[in-house]
Computed example of a mutant assay.
Amino acid sequence: MVTVNLGMLHYVLDHVYGAFVHRTKISPPFFSRGWGGTKLDLLERLIKQLFPDVEGQNWPPTLVQPIWRTVWETKTACLREGVFKTPCDEQLLSALPPESHNARVAFLTPKFVPPQNMACVVHLAGTGDHTFERRLRLGGPLLKENIATMVLESPFYGQRRPLLQCGAKLLCVSDLLLLGRATIEEARSLLHWLDSEAGFGKMGICGLSMGGVHAAMVGSLHPTPIATLPFLSPHSAVVAFCEGILKHATAWEALREDLAVQKAAMTLEEVRERMRNVLSLTDVTRFPIPKNPHAVIFVAATDDGYIPKHSVMELQRAWPGSEVRWVTGGHVSSFLLHNGEFRKAIVDGLNRLEWKESPL
């Protein structure tokens, strides 16, 4: 009898998928055009501004006013799509490609339920998640729990993708930081809209992989308790691009050549160290503890080839009171097979919040 180690099988699946997607010449690698020049210096300064305590943040953010259109509706639910100008300040706006200046959201809500008796969760995109469909499928069954779903299309993705970018393969390292900073600004403004304009009784933020890192940042910075739900996500982009499978999808030679234009030639190991330093800006353990850490639930995979276990535990230790739940599988198989566990975490995280008091 042959005994199959399922954990190893899931881990191998991640590497087989990664080899097919990232080591073939089907698409170019990440950062094929280098670091981003002076734009990278600007973004390093802007991202460092996120680290002070929440009280030092610019809250409330710009209140967005999406222009809505109804996509479909049934007797019990309605799906709308909205467009709004990104609330990023002029410095960020000038760094964004023109295609990313307007943000898009999908908004799936139950009908005939007052917003104050509903919760809404904003879903952020993982790497390569260009459309609304996957996240709407994740949120759809939650309608019966009176939980609405708002899906944000990331800058550089979907209809916001720059013309020269192939798929999810960002052209410059600066694009990764810019995507994250703009996503945080947009998500915070949407949460402000859900609270002050739509009047939802509870709110949450979730995301898978890269979207989970951004969700953790947004949940950290929000001035009131919200459910924060990072799924299959590391504590920092350093882990994804310098330790996990995506290190094989990174244009290290192009990055070395870009640096050589400005300074003496560097070894590949020195280039990787430079990447670690830059991406350390995305380390969520440097962010404040969320207002209600008990409403923070991480869902991680036992045999993830993209995200090592130590990365998940670093963030849990940095946020005492938060919870880690483990699903059996790798990054790819868990993404496909464990939506039920993701939904349960959303419900449980929201249940750990108090309902907002209705105005008199």
Results as ranks from 00 to 15, higher is better:
Pro320Asp: 03
Trp193Leu: 13
Phe20His: 07
Pro290Leu: 06
Phe298Ile: 02
Met275Lys: 01
Arg181Trp: 05
Leu50Thr: 05
Met313His: 09
Ala148Asp: 01
Thr285Lys: 00
His101Val: 05
His222Leu: 13
Met275Arg: 01
Phe287Arg: 04
Ser322Lys: 02
Ala295Met: 03
Glu197Trp: 04
Gly219Ala: 09
Val261Trp: 08
Asp53Trp: 01
Cys172Asn: 15
Leu42Gln: 15
Val239Glu: 06
Pro28Trp: 05
Asn146Val: 10
Pro114Ser: 09
Val83Asp: 06
Leu255Ser: 10
Asn5Trp: 07
Leu136Ser: 04
Cys242Pro: 03
Val2Ser: 10
Leu170Thr: 10
Leu179Thr: 11
Val332Pro: 00
Thr224Ala: 14
Glu357Tyr: 07
Phe156Thr: 04
Thr24Tyr: 07
Val71Tyr: 08
Thr183Gln: 11
Cys172Gln: 14
Thr224Gly: 02
Leu360Ser: 15
Met275Ala: 11
Ala148Gln: 01
Lys169Ile: 00
Met217Thr: 11
Thr183Ile: 03
Phe231Arg: 04
Ser174Asp: 05
Pro97Asp: 08
Phe241Trp: 12
Pro28Thr: 09
Thr86Ile: 07
Phe84Met: 04
Val213Ile: 15
Trp59Leu: 10
Gln116Cys: 12
Thr86Tyr: 00
Tyr11Ile: 00
Gln116Ala: 13
Arg161Glu: 02
Val261Phe: 10
Gly34Arg: 07
Ala77Gln: 14
Ala168Lys: 10
Thr183Pro: 03
Phe241His: 07
Ile47Met: 13
Thr328Val: 06
His338Val: 06
Val83Cys: 09
Ser220Leu: 09
Trp252Phe: 08
Pro98Arg: 11
His338Pro: 06
Leu142Ala: 07
Leu93Met: 14
Asp348Glu: 15
Ile245Arg: 00
Trp252Ser: 09
Thr86Pro: 03
Asn351Glu: 09
Leu337Ala: 11
Leu179His: 13
Pro308Ile: 00
Leu336Gln: 07
Pro97Phe: 08
Ile346Ala: 11
Pro61Tyr: 06
Ser196Ala: 15
Met217Trp: 09
His338Cys: 14
Arg317Thr: 11
Arg256Ala: 15
Gly329Gln: 05
His235Ala: 07
Gln91Leu: 14
Ile47Trp: 05
Ser233Thr: 00
Gly56Asp: 14
Cys88Val: 15
Asn292Gly: 07
Leu40Gly: 02
Pro60Gly: 13
Ala182Gly: 04
Ala254His: 11
Ile26Phe: 08
Glu133Phe: 06
Leu255Asp: 05
Ala264Tyr: 04
Lys291Ser: 14
Tyr306Glu: 00
Thr76Val: 13
Phe30Met: 09
Ala215Asn: 02
Ser233Ala: 15
Gln57Gly: 15
Thr149Ile: 04
Val113Gln: 10
Arg325Gly: 01
Ala215Glu: 00
Thr62Ile: 10
Val284Pro: 02
Ala251Met: 02
Gly82Asn: 08
Thr328His: 10
Val261Arg: 15
Thr302Gly: 04
